[in-house]
Computed example of a mutant assay.
Amino acid sequence: MRRAARPVVAGVVTAAMGAALFGGCLVRTLTGYGSATVSSAGMEPAYGPGDRLVYERIDGDTDGAGDTEGAGGAGGGLRRGDVVLVLAPERYGPLPVVSRVVGVGGERVACCGAEGGAKDGAERVTVDGRELAEPYVKDGIAHGGGLPPYEVTVPGGRVFLLGDHRENARDSRAFLDDRGGTLPVDAVRGRIVPASALAGLLGGMLAGLVPALAGAGLWIAGAVARRRAAPVATPSEWAALL
């Protein structure tokens, strides 16, 4: 390979690799994530009206069902404890709502009756008879809002949802006559994630953009140098060609 051509090749390779990294991260950001604004107080204190949230689009299965601690959630599956964005126009109209997954297919969720009562007499949510630790609920109130006690076995492919502000949340408890208030998993549009979850992708975009620009600059510089190094025909050489 001629020496003048080496910068051109190196520039093309570097630019191509950088562009591929930048493009891949950009596509993942645009197709894998979205944003939404909280419109109600049902998820206080974690999220209040006007809060802007980032959500990760998921495939709507529950393969990763179980407690948040140690749950794998393979394939983006829903897990108990996930805060999710739900679109259920038959219940909430055209706007999506934010709620928390408390029960998944096959689990029995109960509260505040004989089956759902805690040993100390306080109101607690239970899942399959075990008290559910809920440090996120507002003021430690597990029920409220004038809603009746419940005991629901979640059908397969559906989820039972509760807001964190139980005294001000219109969640599965308000629709117990419709399959126990549960919703199909395909009503879930995404799982709420910290905004920092995008940091890696944005860093990848930057990491790709820098070599892409550097490679383009190297390619241009190499092309210019190659052109300058090309031999120029003399008048006698031109005459010999005629």
Rank of each mutant, 00 (worst) to 15 (best):
G93P: 10
V102E: 11
V102L: 09
G93T: 11
S99Y: 13
G103R: 05
G103T: 04
A118M: 03
V109Y: 06
C112L: 05
V86Y: 00
C112M: 09
V98C: 01
V102C: 02
V97G: 11
V83A: 13
P96E: 12
K119C: 09
V101Y: 13
L87Q: 13
P94T: 14
G105E: 03
G106N: 09
V86F: 05
G105L: 06
G106F: 07
G106C: 01
R108I: 06
C111F: 01
P96S: 14
V86E: 05
R100Y: 10
R108V: 14
L95N: 15
L95F: 11
V84K: 09
V84L: 06
V97H: 07
G105Q: 01
R100E: 09
A88Q: 07
P94L: 10
V83E: 11
A118P: 00
E107T: 00
P89T: 09
A110T: 12
R108A: 12
A88T: 06
G93M: 03
G105D: 04
K119W: 10
V84T: 05
E107H: 06
R100A: 08
E90R: 12
V104S: 12
V102M: 09
G113H: 03
G93A: 06
G105C: 01
R108P: 02
G106R: 01
G106H: 00
V98S: 08
V98I: 11
V98A: 13
V86D: 07
K119E: 15
A88M: 07
L85V: 14
G117N: 12
V98H: 02
E115M: 02
C112Q: 13
V97F: 12
V83H: 05
A118E: 04
E107D: 15
P89K: 05
R108T: 15
G105K: 12
E115Q: 14
V102S: 04
G103H: 05
G113R: 04
P96D: 06
Y92M: 13
A114C: 02
R108N: 13
Y92A: 11
G117I: 07
C111W: 03
R108E: 14
V86L: 13
P89H: 11
L85A: 08
V84R: 11
P96H: 13
G106K: 02
G105I: 03
P89E: 10
C111Y: 02
P96G: 10
K119D: 13
A88E: 10
C111P: 00
C112H: 03
E107N: 06
E90K: 12
R108Q: 14
V104W: 01
V98E: 07
V97C: 03
L85E: 08
V109W: 04
C112F: 05
A88V: 09
G105W: 04
V109C: 01
V98N: 04
